[in-house]
């Protein structure tokens, strides 16, 4: 079996008294799309934020392309150290609230990180930025500021911005939850395109149709652990666990 792109083993995360992740194990192969479902507070978002170390886990192991990114206190160095640079230049993230930089134009949003972090030249970055924005259907918005864009357009800029760093893995944290219903499809279409090109993706979502259609694996989380995982058909159509059945019943009966 080929080496996993992302591998989590026994990941724990605590916020004060609250234990948000209570031992999560997950393997994601290269090119695989994993959709993560679950009620709010189940730890889905925290899981994603652990993978790019926005919330470094307290315990457990996360391997990115076989590289241990959170060598814990017991790894020999004597203190906790996280491989932030290694991770953030390989993992892209898109947020529910877009988080575009409001004081930068659309094109500058996309080119800022490659220029500052990777030290690439302006011309090279702008050429690539234009290509990425064209790909998400926004080549006519290059010089606009984010506040002039609809939510769906802003989210597509955010995806282009993350792609500009040429990530090997993309994390999507409820990227359609803040959108008006008619804008959801334009964003999901971009995700579909990425999946078709073989991008490795972890997608926290409430879009069951998307999970069924695009997901290679579906993971159901509750109470800080993975309750059930498998193919979309297994988890969505024939859930074995009571908690999964109950959740799907509530979501699908809307």
């Amino acid at each position: 079996m080929p080496e996993a792109m992302v591998k989590l083993a026994g990941v724990h995360k605590r916020f004060g008294e609250l234990e948000v992740l209570r031992g999560v194990n997950l393997e994601v192969a290269k090119g695989e799309v994993v959709c993560i479902l679950g009620p709010s507070g189940s730890g889905k978002s925290t899981l994603l934020r652990c993978v790019n170390l926005l919330e470094p886990p307290e315990d457990g192991e996360i391997l990115l392309e076989g590289h241990d990114i959170c060598r814990g206190p017991n790894s020999g160095t004597g203190e906790q150290s996280w491989e932030l640079d290694f991770v953030r230049q390989r993992v892209g993230m898109v947020f529910q609230q877009f988080n575009l930089f409001p004081h930068k134009t659309v094109l500058d949003n996309v080119t800022l990180a490659p220029r500052q972090v990777l030290g690439k030249g302006r011309a090279e970055c702008e050429e690539k930025g234009r290509a990425l924005l064209e790909r998400v259907g926004l080549s006519d918005k290059l010089d606009q500021y984010p506040e002039r864009l609809s939510g769906g357009q802003q989210q597509r800029v955010a995806i282009a911005r993350a792609l500009a760093m040429e990530p090997h893995v993309m994390l999507f944290d409820e990227v359609t939850s803040a959108l008006d219903p008619e804008l959801v499809k334009e964003v999901l279409d971009v995700l579909r395109g990425l999946a078709a090109e073989g991008m490795t993706m972890l997608v926290v979502t409430h879009e069951m149709g998307f999970a069924r259609e695009v997901g290679d694996q579906v993971v159901f989380m509750d109470g800080g652990v993975i309750v059930e995982q498998g193919t979309p058909a297994d988890v969505l159509d024939n859930p074995r666990e009571e908690r999964t059945k109950k959740f799907l019943g509530l979501v699908l009966e809307r």
């Binding site: 953030r88 892209g92 993230m93 930089f101 004081h103 800022l112 500052q116 972090v117 760093m165």
Partner: peptide
């Protein structure tokens, strides 16, 4: 400045000082 701004900058690989200089202080 909303915390999401720093998170976005950090998730793009910017260091704390790059995030401050380019994202947080100008806003």
């Amino acid at each position: 400045v909303p915390p999401g701004q720093i998170e976005a900058a950090r998730s793009l690989g910017m260091s704390h000082s790059q995030a401050m200089r380019h994202i947080v202080v100008p806003q």
